[in-house]
Design a binder for these strands. Sequence first.
DNA 1: CGAATCTTTGAACTGAGTCAATTAAAGTGG
DNA 2: CCACTTTAATTGACTCAGTTCAAAGATTCG
Lengths: 276, 276
Amino acid sequence: MNSPVLPQPTPTAATGAGRGAGSRLLAARCTASDLLRWAGLASWIGPDSDAVTFALRRVAAHSTLVAEGQPLHSLFAVASGSFKCVQVDREGYEQVLGFGLHGDMLGLDALGEQRHPSSLVALEDSAVAVLPASQLLEAGHHVESLERLLLHAIGVELLHRGDTQYLMSAPGSEVRVARFLLHLAQRQQALGQSTRRLRLRMTRRDIASHLGVAHETVSRALTALAHAGCIAVSQRDIEIVDAAALTAMQRVTRGLPRGRHVDDERMRRPVQRAAA
Amino acid sequence: MNSPVLPQPTPTAATGAGRGAGSRLLAARCTASDLLRWAGLASWIGPDSDAVTFALRRVAAHSTLVAEGQPLHSLFAVASGSFKCVQVDREGYEQVLGFGLHGDMLGLDALGEQRHPSSLVALEDSAVAVLPASQLLEAGHHVESLERLLLHAIGVELLHRGDTQYLMSAPGSEVRVARFLLHLAQRQQALGQSTRRLRLRMTRRDIASHLGVAHETVSRALTALAHAGCIAVSQRDIEIVDAAALTAMQRVTRGLPRGRHVDDERMRRPVQRAAA
DNA sequence: CGAATCTTTGAACTGAGTCAATTAAAGTGG
DNA sequence: CCACTTTAATTGACTCAGTTCAAAGATTCG
């Protein structure tokens, strides 16, 4: 059926001592060292990093890890799989605030009011490390690497939010999608995965919500970018064919303060647009 | 360099007398108690809250407190005045990520890479408390209220970013502006200031950038809202005449303005079991 | 296999961006 | 203090990109 675990492209010598092939997720707990490794901060691992362990929890695809409004009990770190962070308003409109990939910390926005302002939903079968809020500060005082991890995660989260605002500030849909793809590729790169091949775990609707456009527009933008030769699209598998062109496209923003469009019809309009 | 004479010799602390808000007299330093008071967290003030003090620093209108890319030296708390947080991309387009009001913590997004991803620019003559990053953690371990303050500020910042994404997700410009005004009013309320009268410290351009629209559109939306009787506009002074109408307007999101399928389509089944 | 969801494509309508011109305010300097 | 220069704000006209409505493929899942 569903593949339980994706094989690691980068054979980082498993956590600890690899108990059985690919069975790391079956372990009941993980250490701060694991968290650091997932976040790409292996260099911060110190002798104290194994002093604390955290429970692992499986989350089935499409199930809700935390629901909006729920009081803060713990933070989470993505051990495997992926999540979306959403808010739904009274009208039922779903706003996707972001996506959590391997190693990302989830639930940080609950630190303000001690309750979760957004829901966390698994996009696929996933697993998270559970970091009890009460235990965190206490442990952080004794395990320095853990405290640094937390602070780092906070900064990264804020960085992503900034990126998202930048995403949404783009006036053109193709630009937004291009930025989104590049942003995703960049994050995958940080995880040591391919920069060219992207496997989108979220629906077009989720992407659309995240980008602030209609889902049809995402489709159209994707096909337009493909038609322009920037990418190749096959369902949720996307290959970045011409990263340079994509980047160039991503740079087009709203009305430059001054100066003219030096950029011109580089495949300005693939649409057949009322040719009549 | 250091200002030769400080007008008001309110020596150290002055926390007992000062509510911080009133005059713009500036003590050379402030305490954690002050920070908590500014943030509306006076209830957290404990005996240890005066154990640490922080330098105050004046920032002239339009001057840059921190420039994009600058390494992280300290965080800041707004003692008086206001700031905008901006990123400018290679084309020179300025993206406003947010505004910092009295009591807000500034520079948190630098915690990720130990470098400021965005600039902080004073919108008017302002002052900030300087919280050296190195000193912060250390002090936090001993002064509990300070640590809680930091965590709270982080959560609040994340909350604001979420609000901003919600802002920008609105398809209509009037909706965005309405949400922006209500958001601002809400923050002012948290500071104990008027909910009806808003004095915008930022230009229309800044607002436009923050909302992801053209600055002309902000003007138009403002006059439209005024024409609808929701608000009254006089330059940068805005009075919220009909908060209910504004709120109603703010709720209009994409796709369900009129008519048909309002309910059935969104079959919400929010909670599914997460754990195995 | 069929039901439901996801995805793509089409066509028409409209709201917001761009360009442009005018007015208002604020900062500069003699 | 008052010309003068700059920057901010408002308003109008026109065009187009993206939303909306609609419907047909594709994919997943029970």
